[in-house]
Amino acid sequence: MQKQLLASIALVAGTAVANPLTIYTYDSFVAEWGPGPQIEANFEQKCGCDVEFVALADGVSLLNRLRIEGDDTKADIVLGIDNALLADARKTGQVAEHTVDTSELVVPGGWAHNDFVPFDYGQFAFVYDSERVSNPPTSLAELIDSDLSVVYMDPRTSTVGAGLLYWMKSVFGEQAGDKWAALADNTTTVTQGWSDAYYGIFMEGGADAVLSYVTSPAYHIEYEDETRFKAMPFSEGHYQQIEVAFVTHASQQAELANDFLQYLVSPEAQSIIPTTNWMFPVHPEAELPASFEQLITPADILMFDEDDVANERSNWVREWLNAAS
């Protein structure tokens, strides 16, 4: 009751309330090399308002924070959870419907939610060094049976690691447990985060293949002019991650928040995404760097329904724990 009253006072007061637009996101989004700073500057100029990012470790932390804060949250927007967490996000009771026009957006597999706004996507892939590995496996099954050393992330701590969990499950179904056990034989280590595995181990020569995205080689082409790092195209198809944002129910400046999300999916903001977040933009008119043309095209896009993920994830994690140990 009191909250509503406050909200209406804020509405009456209108834009005179100089609260910053507060956005909870994961930390690499707002890192100096990430898309955050540029998007923030551009939008602030357009709206004449103040945008404030609060950076947390990852998507799961975002939701935990939101769960704890409830209606007291300062967040107007939560940006950076992925399609696996949609049901969990709704459970916080903070996901409001948006007013963003998403009709022009293109996401493989389609997008039909009116509470989450997709802002980029990418498919998981194993990346290898073509100068070290000459005959890369052509399927997930082949990789598991090969003797290449593999490093991947813990599905409990990393959204990329969780991606492999869904990927394995969608490819192998009931056999996923056995496949995890088989993969354990050539696993160098399971790290907590993506950068530990990618930079700490794979790039230092500690493993032959690392779990990452099909877009990862583009980074090496753009910044290092290096084409030896490649993604392995797998015949079973690749599991797809879609990153989304939503406006919170607690937000007292929902209109401004929606404006921000509309800007986020505009061609201008979407053109920033590929070379900063290293994901595919959702707007077809966004500019793509040349390096993206050298990327592999997945044979098939794999995705679970978000309710299946929400219901089954802990069982799948348990299956992985049991099998990989």
């Binding site: 935990n64 354990a184 696993t187 280590t189 790290t191 802990s314 994690v317 992985w320 724990l321 140990s325």
Partner: peptide, 22 residues
């Protein structure tokens, strides 16, 4: 440790709470 197999009880407790809220 490097993976769910080479984990001790002490670490597993930490992971269950911190990773999974379980």
């Amino acid at each position: 440790g490097g993976g769910p197999g080479s984990t001790t009880l002490e670490i597993a407790i930490y992971q269950a709470l911190h990773y999974e809220f379980d």
